[in-house]
Write a protein that binds this DNA or RNA. Structure first.
Length: 233
DNA sequence: GCGACAG
DNA sequence: ATCTTGTCGC
């Protein structure tokens, strides 16, 4: 899909896509999804997966897995070109779309406001949140070593582009930013409510686990419903 | 030119 | 991202 794009073309395309970004609160959230990619080093095969869980219960309900071929290389600032095409393919397998999707990477916390979460959000016309494990753009003070302590991230212009969030004591923070069709504050709130006992919030953590099992042949492609566990009685 | 650099 | 052993801390 983007295999023939030069980085110069890609940057111009990101600037155009960014003009379509919209930030508004989500009315009601009952389901949240996590999306991620896994691949073997030096391979063009991408193993994409999207998991859907209840919100705020964080109970896994279903998940979709699919492969996609791409030769677009990884380059800081252009992650969407490598991952979004594969994610859009798995996205089609989901019958009932979730209320919001969390991506492993940034939203508008990006030099051209078009991180992988914003990129996917625009193309899928879907509310998205970016949750990165390391900082790509901007600067911030270190949040206190207290659970859910935050620090604003600003760029050299002074624009507030996201938050560093300490999801677990003694662990490095994660970086949250709005992707599309959501606000910065709501993105932060939703991620806080999606954290359990790990540094990585449940949507992205489970997506990462399943996509890795998929790559290792432990799971097959397609849409899967998870048998409801009877917590009752 | 120098340093930074999601996954 | 993936590969990969030991090691530090709760």
């Amino acid at each position: 899909m983007y295999d023939h794009y030069s980085f110069e073309d890609a940057a111009a395309y990101q600037i155009e896509l960014a003009k379509q970004l919209k930030f508004q609160p989500i009315n009601k959230i009952e389901t949240i999804a996590g999306a991620d990619i896994s691949f073997n080093k030096n391979s063009t095969t991408m193993y994409a997966g999207i998991v859907i869980l209840t919100y705020p219960g964080m109970v896994l309900k279903s998940f979709a897995l699919e492969t996609y071929e791409t030769s677009f290389p990884y380059k800081a600032g252009f992650l969407g070109f490598k991952e979004v095409p594969a994610l859009l393919k798995v996205w089609e397998l989901i019958p009932n779309k979730p209320d919001v999707v969390v991506l492993d990477g940034n939203g508008i916390l990006h030099p051209r406001r078009m991180g992988v979460a914003s990129h996917f959000g625009i193309l899928a016309n879907q509310a998205t949140i970016g949750c990165a494990k390391s900082l790509l753009h901007g600067q911030n003070h270190q949040p206190q070593n207290v659970k859910f302590s935050t620090a604003e991230i600003k760029n050299n212009t002074g624009e507030m582009l996201g938050f560093a969030l300490r999801t677990k004591i003694n662990c490095a923070p994660v970086y949250i930013s709005a992707g599309h069709l959501i606000t910065q504050e709501e993105s932060l709130d939703i991620i806080k409510k999606s954290v359990r006992n790990y540094r990585i919030p449940e949507p992205t953590r489970l997506a990462h686990n399943l996509v890795n099992d998929f790559r290792l042949g432990k799971l097959k492609s397609g849409f899967h419903e998870v048998a409801p566990s009877l917590t009752l009685f």
